[in-house]
Design a binder for these strands. Structure first.
Length: 343
DNA sequence: AAGCGTCAAGGCATG
DNA sequence: CATGCCTTGACGCTT
């Protein structure tokens, strides 16, 4: 029996019905990372700043371990989570990166993250990361490409410390093409990545410039992650799971079960009373709604028809849920998915 | 408790 | 030219 996963990104929210805290977006401090800023660090004495970075390192690695253990306690089909990029703050920032080379710092990262990786594998939790929008491997500016590779390798280092990256796609580090150099620029940067980074990189379509067809130009090198919502925003049509391009995406994963990204437009942009039909792009544009407004992610998966469409990919794809309500939204989608299967 | 200014970074769309 | 958005709004200070 194959495991079909639904995952969520970066943060665990406590279910308000199960806690005293009734706020919807109640972060759980034990399960979530904290961070700092370069400006704050620069205002402190060196000793205070280094202590803060040390404390953040210890807390964040522990928090990720707790998060993975929590996800590992869920139904096997829900054991997938994206780890936040802020695990080791200012890792590539010029004035503070020296901290992460200090021997005792490295020793802690190596041993603590090795343990986290072991736990993730024991519990069969599928992991990924998603570097921020500042990682532009295909920038036309060489210095930006340089820093982007550096930042990408920071993510690969975390994967390596956790024991991943030795095998093709045992860990996913996902980026957009971004940058004016397009697929050729990504290909050039790809050639400069470490083996672990090459084993982990995936390329995702965006809604503005570089769509699914551009991503497929890289399918021989990198697995392709389809963001089906942003593909809808870009093309105005709901991607058909039987589309030939979907086959090429599946093949780009070379036997590993592919992942796609699913989100839906915000509740305050569309009519959320209509939950049984998919929004029609032509109608929305005719109403004066701009594509930019449709990009932003909703709190929950409020449209059952769009959910059914997304879940029609589930037999072939693990689904990374990108909703502001995180694990709560994923649990909601999972309930509908179970209903679909028994119906 | 709530509100607000701040924060490393690139590239795009919109007004 | 300025603002907001995206991986992910969190943090710390003020009221």
């Amino acid at each position: 029996m194959i495991i079909k996963r639904l995952g969520f990104a970066c943060k665990w929210l406590d279910d308000p019905s199960e806690t005293a805290n009734m706020k919807i977006h109640a972060r759980n401090r034990q399960l979530n990372t904290s961070t700092t800023t370069v400006a704050w660090l620069n205002r402190q004495t060196r000793a205070v700043a280094e202590q803060r970075l040390w404390d953040l390192m210890v807390h964040n690695i522990t928090a990720n371990q707790c998060l993975i253990q929590r996800v590992g306690s869920l139904d096997p089909n829900l054991r997938m989570v994206r780890l936040g990029s802020d695990m080791l703050p200012v890792y590539t920032e010029p004035s503070w990166r020296y901290f992460w080379s200090l021997p005792d710092v490295r020793a802690h990262c190596e041993s603590a993250l090795a343990k986290v990786g072991t736990i993730a594998r024991q519990l069969d939790v599928r992991l990924s990361m998603h570097p921020g929008p500042f990682v532009v491997l295909a920038s036309h500016r060489p210095d930006v490409v340089e820093r982007s590779i550096d930042e990408f390798e920071y993510h690969a280092t975390i994967a390596r410390w956790m024991g991943y990256g030795q095998v093709w796609q045992d860990f996913k580090i996902n980026v957009h093409i971004a940058g004016q150099a397009g697929p050729a620029g990504v290909r050039a940067a790809y050639g400069r990545l470490s083996p672990e980074a090459r084993n982990s990189i995936t390329i995702e379509n965006d809604e503005n410039t570089w769509g699914l067809d551009h991503c497929l130009e890289l399918a021989n090198s990198c697995p392709i992650v389809i963001d089906i919502h942003h593909n809808w925003v870009r093309e105005g049509q709901y991607l058909d799971p039987r589309d030939l391009r979907v086959d090429r995406v599946v093949q780009s994963w070379r036997g590993v079960r592919p992942v796609l990204h699913y989100s839906v437009s915000r509740e305050d942009v569309l009519d959320i009373r209509t939950t049984d039909t998919k929004p029609n792009m032509c109608q929305l544009l005719a109403q004066g709604i701009k594509k930019q407004q449709l990009r932003a992610h909703s709190d929950f998966y409020w449209n059952r028809a769009v959910n059914r469409w997304a879940l029609s990919f589930w037999p072939q794809f693990d689904i990374m849920c990108e909703s502001k309500s995180k694990n709560l939204a994923t649990a909601q989608l999972y309930q509908q998915a179970l209903g679909c299967e028994t119906a």
